[in-house]
Design a protein around this nucleic acid. Structure first.
Lengths: 205, 205
DNA sequence: CAAAAACTGTACTTCCGGTAAAGTGAAATG
DNA sequence: CATTTCACTTTACCGGAAGTACAGTTTTTG
């Protein structure tokens, strides 16, 4: 990584932490450059404006989350051949990971974008949409493998059910932040897991 | 309502619409006063600063949502004596109401506050916490009445389950906004309802 | 060593949140 | 009927933040 990329990443690290705790609007460029010990011109050499920073932040964020989920559910599939059990293990691992964050989940940039729409251009909105759709696709595939073996005990739209994973995480983060209780997020994921058990597992009656 | 109250409400109406679509940071006072046809000093006569506006907005918002949910679940209890069935009817009515919003749910001020922390003082954060806790209490009471009759088919923490209602709504709103598909929210509420059925209804096996 | 990359320095513009203080018309109050 | 209070307007100003312009300087790299 060249020196330019290094500085760029450093700026993004500082910005991301600030955006996730204070919101995008409350994160000033002056503050970022002070923390990064760089001049304003230096900042604008890397990002032509705040929108470009947002775009880069979101792109990096969704790439990382994607890689993280890939690892996690790959690992779950290594632990169990059956798609349902692998899914349930994956959810458990996910919940544990969320519970292990010492100060709670820092927040989700996707949600930040939703509640700060105006700050972002159509590129950012599109990127946001795509990332949510990729989560939908990821879990939909997983669920399709499950229903082939386990007929669901209630009439559910698999696409909506796939979205429920993302929704549970987004909602859980909001609840955790509002209540200032980090453990809420993990508990919500475990409740979704309980739903998956009741819906698919034959033993449950 | 005196003339002062009328102007105040008008300012809040304009501000609320803008905050929910663009976020708090992107909503400028200049823009509000232009739309309300009032001077800047006029605005600051009603609200001493932007924090006070946020506080008033959030208070009004949670009061309205509370009244709305009171009506809805009261109505559901009129339609069925059994607490579980009344709860399921209430959820259905809720989902229908969310589906009927022509342009989708405008967004939730509670979540807006979570993703704009810095803009708000501790009063606002406390108000936010209280409002989430009041939803928790509302649904917890409902669930306690249910478990007295219907033993749950999985080991769940009722408090977390009560929070899942709020979480589903918050998550559903984020998903709807990110995907630009208003129907997602109602579908998510119906999935939570499906979970409640599987968890409590004996007929399901 | 030369060129390109990665900045610094200075100066300026616009928008926004917020303050200060004097003034004004309408309506309530005594 | 006079006076006070309410609900503003007018004018002028301040500081912070985003962003521009552009010339100059250091650092890296081929």
């Amino acid at each position: 990584m060249g020196k330019g990329q290094e500085t760029r990443e450093r700026l993004m690290d500082i910005a991301e932490a600030s955006v996730l705790t204070k919101g995008f609007g409350a994160t000033s460029i002056d503050e970022i450059i002070a923390a990064a010990d760089i001049t304003k011109s230096g900042f604008f050499y890397h990002f032509k404006d705040k929108n470009q920073l947002a775009r880069a932040l979101l792109q990096r964020y969704v790439d990382r989350e994607d890689a993280l989920l890939d690892d996690l559910f790959d690992r779950a599939r290594e632990l169990h051949d059956d798609p349902l059990h692998a899914f349930l293990i994956g959810l458990k691992l996910f919940a544990e990971m969320m519970a292990d964050l010492p100060n709670g989940h820092p927040g989700c940039l996707v949600a930040t974008c939703c509640y700060n729409e105006r700050l972002f251009d159509s590129d950012v909105r599109e990127l946001n949409r795509k990332s949510v759709l990729s989560w939908r696709q990821r879990f939909l595939t997983e669920l399709e493998n499950i229903v082939e073996i386990y007929p669901p005990k209630d009439d559910v739209d698999l696409e909506a059910l796939a979205d429920m994973v993302s929704g549970t995480v987004e909602g859980g983060i909001v609840m955790s932040k509002a209540l200032e209780q980090p453990e809420v997020l993990a508990k919500q994921i475990m409740l979704f897991r309980s739903y998956a058990k009741l819906l698919f597992l034959p033993a449950y009656n």
